[in-house]
Nucleic acid binder design. Sequence first.
DNA 1: TGAATATTTGAACAACTATTCAAGTATATT
DNA 2: AATATACTTGAATAGTTGTTCAAATATTCA
Lengths: 119, 119
Amino acid sequence: MANIDCERLAEHSATAKRAKEGILSGTDLARVCRIFQLLSDPGRLNIVYALMKGEMCVHHLTEVCGGTVSAVSHQLRLLRENGIIKAKRIGQHMEYSIADEHVCEIVALAVKHLECEVD
Amino acid sequence: MANIDCERLAEHSATAKRAKEGILSGTDLARVCRIFQLLSDPGRLNIVYALMKGEMCVHHLTEVCGGTVSAVSHQLRLLRENGIIKAKRIGQHMEYSIADEHVCEIVALAVKHLECEVD
DNA sequence: TGAATATTTGAACAACTATTCAAGTATATT
DNA sequence: AATATACTTGAATAGTTGTTCAAATATTCA
């Protein structure tokens, strides 16, 4: 029997069809998720956010972001392995810098939108 | 003794000072991380991406995103508790939709940038 | 009221992740 | 060569997270 919801549910069905057609491929999905995952840790986000201000060595990054040098180093490795940052040796020091500007834009957008929210 | 790195290291130090001044506050950092964390799971990202196409009920979402109804429901709860989506009862169904357009923009940017990459 | 459909929920379990600590490598200085 | 500084790495551990399964709730319809 036709009830008041039929129209709305038909729309849902049409939306589902469109959504199914436009779904992200397995590899695209995995790549986008991986980026978000890397940015989901406070330590790593701090590092990326700090490097957006300029190049720095591990000691300075640790000073800015807190924690131990070892923990920061582990996080730097993850970010580097995933192409978000890059490293260059300068004598005894390693100079870290941003490798993927796209990721910076995503971070900048997220921070900007956060500040828009009124709660 | 002055070596070739001094200038660069002095720059690092100045960058560190700037980075320290501009660091995200504890709560801002946590909120941005939380958003990224919610988007870092393939199931949840699929859900958000699907809802960007329009409103849908749990059954349709499960059809689009795969997995079991229970798993999708658990993920919907997390997204809802964090204000990313909202729900409305329509008879026996729940109609889920986007609550935070900012998050959609972040997802859209991430997907768009992914497609720019040449590798 | 009772059966059917749609969704939620809690508990348990397996998989993953971040940190710590100790030991390792790399470079510079003496 | 020996020491100091800067950083990395591996293993262990504790905490977190996603999924599953079974049971519960909510609504509709006969």
